[in-house]
Amino acid sequence: MKYKAFRKCLAIPFWLFLILFVIFPILFIIFYAFTDVNGNFTFDAFTSFFTSPVKLNVLLISILIGLFNTFLCLLIGFPLAYILANPKFNKNYVLVMLFVMPMWINFVLRTGALRDLLSIILNACGTTTGEHPLLCTMIGMVLNYLPFTILPLYSTMLKLDKNQIEAAQDLGCNPVKTFTKSIIPQAMPGIVSASMMVFMPTISSYVISDTLSEGKIMLFGNSIYLSFSNSDWNGGSFMSLIMLIIIFLVMLFTRKFQGEKDADRGNGSW
């Protein structure tokens, strides 16, 4: 029975890696969040975060932009995924691949390209990108995260129960009611995981907001990056901790909707 021990041993590097580079770093973040430069226990980072209107503003704006971006991506992506998954319109997987393809071009390069293009368009209209930071950032966010919304939505749309939709129509639902009472509830797991794929990365994004708003819009990611470049490990750790807590809360919230079946998300990306 030696081989039974052998095959468990195969996972040792994996476990070591998880402990050393996933658990330990999180413990270090918690440690740094509640100590000062000399390593003494304090609540400095805590109080300076919650008494600073600038930092609280950054958190609020990040959440608002995150929600807005999620909403826009779902608004554009939902009909798109519905069309792509409907055999009446599209039988070819290649079209879906075309939507995913931009993800494989370096995203910093894409962001730079978008900025240059937007500045040319806005210059032609007589303004600059610096004057419309919110508009430019939102365009960048939507273009970047749309493929992430389309994939999970598409895979749930493929499983839509056509009979139930038809039954709803036969039983006298108008199109609006069919949509809200039958299609949306069926597509809920996809909507939830698509929102997760957009909301979290938007809050913590750095490159898009930094490039497209010319540094005018600070998101939570930008302010963590700022404390990194100032070597402010304690403040940065505290903000990372807050980000972790937000992620944890959102995960708890989405668990309710998702059910156990779709728990291993991330498989859907390939």
Binding site: I26, F28, I29, S204, F228, G236
Partner: peptide, 13 residues
């Protein structure tokens, strides 16, 4: 599920 920047920050710290 973690944000990339939190992974980066935690490793750096």
């Amino acid at each position: 599920v973690n944000a990339e920047i939190v992974i980066a920050m935690s490793l750096t710290v």
